[in-house]
């Protein structure tokens, strides 16, 4: 296959066979499959190519990499593989999708785009906790991306909020910069995997775990964060944690606001409903990866779902070509 292909953009085809919304692991994997079948494929990415995988420091559980792989490198490999077979990635955002029967129309920051099929693979974004100080000190002491902003906290104290995989993994990552980390967990146990919790144990010298501690307020002075006010729920007492910064990892919320017209059905938390063929409630519109209701929120499952969706998209296009 040609590696030195001509550089195309979103205007290369009047009607694309498939437009993928997002260029995370799910869509990039789907694109490897569709492009190898000569299905013209355009991906829209409003953030980072590689999605959440690209901003993950290190991935230990993606098959095929016995020593693990840096998230940024995995993302770059996925991009190269999709582009090698002709996927076109447009840096821009899809704002809405309209069903026109035999084709779909996407309103995007690059104009109106037409497609025979659409794959929704928009994943999710970090949730905020909604406490005083969170908005005010955003990017000046309150952060949601350790690989982006961790380096500003060399030899400084940090508070990390959350008790799931992301919080534990990122707290461990941040030990390479911070002098000390207070990890505030609202519940009385971790929701993270056993492997990660064991790994956390190895960093006892730098990370103090505080179970049953809520995060009530982020307080600062002269534009910089100074401490976090918390409640120890076990004894019902307020506690203050001195800190230079706060990293928040309390879960994710689906990127489905652009489907607000309600035609593509969502579940109660806003994830896209699909049937077992990964088709949504609109014919010709598919969903894969973290954004799909029932997804298992892992890179390996996102890439697997991307492959499945691509094969179903091929069947749909074949049927359409045969006038079915």
């Amino acid at each position: 296959m040609a590696d030195n292909k001509e550089v195309l953009d979103a205007t290369a085809h009047e009607v694309w066979d498939v437009v993928m919304v997002g260029a995370g692991p799910a869509a990039l994997s789907a694109a490897v499959y569709t492009t190898r079948e000569d299905i013209t494929t355009l991906l829209f990415e409003k953030g980072v190519i590689g999605g959440l995988a690209a901003i993950t420091d290190w991935v230990d559980n993606y098959p095929g990499f016995p020593k693990g792989i840096a998230g940024l490198d995995l993302a770059e490999n996925l991009r190269l593989q999709a582009e090698r077979f002709g996927a076109v990635i447009e840096l821009g955002e899809v704002l809405s999708i309209a069903d026109k029967g035999d084709h779909k129309e996407l309103d995007t920051t690059s104009g109106l785009i037409k497609a025979r099929t659409v794959l929704i693979a928009t994943g999710s974004d970090y949730k905020k906790i909604g406490v005083p100080g969170e908005e005010e000190y955003y990017a000046r002491g309150v952060h949601y991306c350790a690989t982006c902003d961790g380096a500003f906290y060399r030899d400084k104290r940090l508070v990390v909020v959350g008790g799931g995989n992301s919080a534990v993994q990122e707290a461990i990552f941040l030990t390479r910069f911070a002098s000390h980390i207070d990890l505030l967990v609202r519940g009385d146990s971790f929701r993270a995997s056993d492997v990660l919790v064991k790994e956390l144990d190895k960093h006892k010298d730098k990370i103090s775990v505080h179970m049953q501690h809520t995060t009530d307020e982020i307080v600062g002075k002269d534009n910089l964060v100074t401490h976090v006010v918390s409640t120890n729920k076990a004894i019902g007492e307020k506690v203050e944690f001195k800190t230079d910064g706060v990293f928040i990892f309390v879960g994710l919320s689906p990127n489905t606001a652009f489907l607000k017209d309600g035609k593509v059905e969502l579940d109660e938390i806003g994830l896209v409903k699909t049937n077992h063929e990964l088709e949504t409630t609109i014919k010709g519109i598919y969903a894969a990866g973290d954004v799909r209701s029932g997804a298992t929120m892992q890179i390996a499952s996102a890439t697997g779902e991307g492959a499945t969706a691509a094969l179903k998209i091929r069947e749909y296009i074949d049927d359409q070509n045969m006038g079915a």
Binding site: V48, A54, A70, L91, T147, C148
Partner: peptide, 17 residues
């Protein structure tokens, strides 16, 4: 930039493009 910052890669990619 920093070594691990994926958004930095995107800014460089966009400026390059």
């Amino acid at each position: 930039t920093t070594n691990t910052c994926a958004y930095c890669v995107m800014v460089k990619k966009w400026l390059g493009a």
